[in-house]
Write a protein that binds this DNA or RNA. Structure first.
Ligand code: SF4
Ligand code: SF4
Lengths: 162, 162
DNA sequence: ATATTAAGGATAAATAATATCCCTATTATA
DNA sequence: TATAATAGGGATATTATTTATCCTTAATAT
């Protein structure tokens, strides 16, 4: 059970978009080059972000993506669910209904304890992701990235931002 | 990102094994019939439990599986990891190393903030699963299952246990 | 006009999950 | 002692999902 690599891509792209000055856009092409990713496929991840309303887009030369909200209002969960979907990791195939001792007329109401416990674990995972925003991430990245590299990277980005 | 259905199977099988009297074994065949599952494939899940040391097995007619520990000592996490593996849901493809601004001689030390946050969420998930044991599950199932069905099921099970 | 962009449909390739088949060694029991 | 039932495990097939590419369309800055 492994998340799509698009989740990692989307998180890194959002981290870059967070640092973009007001009103500027960054294209798929630039984001793909910066991260060494296949442009067309990265595009699908960015489209997911767009459909989820996390980014704004504009067309034409100098077009691309920018955050639709302030970094403090976008959580990891928003991004992960936009790309990965909102399905729970534990899906219930109702195998208890195959029990040969089950009366024909009996009908279970609601999920059993197994499902409820697994879903609580999923919720703990989501709760953690909900508690971290892009501005938290930016703060951490600034602290752990060498100052020169951070500066060079955003100079590179601004050179390509529309 | 969805767990293998074998996880659900293993949890339900362990719930049944929890209720088995001391020293009795239950075969793959019986567990497969009880849950309406493909016997050969369920067998793989049970082998995973066996390799993880969660169940004991014995061969021959009247052979099968029993818990290797008391129900209070087996957690959901033990079972989930036995079947699903211990890999984290977020895997790191080190895409930051593709940054064109990165000096050739630079070498990142340790995972970045993105990875650490995602792994903390994974850990919250595991922590929840670690906090629930098979005896907790049994208590919940007894409470929510009609008494007659529970009794009939274990009568059926004991009729097939070696 | 032209070049560049996001969006999205179609499709292919690679990987992982699901499932079946078959053989071996072990063991209870008839 | 012979027989039937069992777990373990290797090989392989089937199906679903993930990853990736290609191409068309409509919008837009220059
Ligand atoms: S987890 Fe519970 S609800 Fe889901 S199939 Fe198993 S028994 Fe039914
Ligand atoms: S998550 Fe962090 S450590 Fe993992 S690849 Fe992306 S940048 Fe590197």
């Amino acid at each position: 059970m492994i998340l799509k690599s698009q989740v990692e891509w989307a998180l890194h792209c959002c981290a870059i978009l967070s640092g973009l000055p007001e009103g500027r856009y960054l294209s798929t092409k630039a984001l793909a080059e910066l991260h060494g990713l296949p442009k067309e496929y990265l595009s699908k991840a960015l489209q997911s972000l767009s459909q989820a309303g996390l980014v704004d887009t504009t067309l034409g030369p100098s077009g691309g993506y920018r955050l639709a909200k302030s970094p403090g209002q976008v959580t990891f969960l928003d991004i992960v669910e936009a790309v990965e979907g909102e399905t729970r990791t534990f899906v219930c195939n109702n195998i208890r209904t195959n029990n040969p001792c089950l009366p024909d007329d009996y009908c279970y109401s609601g999920p059993c304890a197994v499902a409820r416990i697994m879903w609580e674990a999923d919720e703990a995972w989501r709760e953690k992701l909900r508690s971290v925003t892009l501005s938290d991430l930016e703060r951490m990245l600034v602290r752990e990235t060498p100052a020169k590299l951070w500066k060079d990277t955003f100079a590179w980005v601004l050179g390509r931002a529309g």
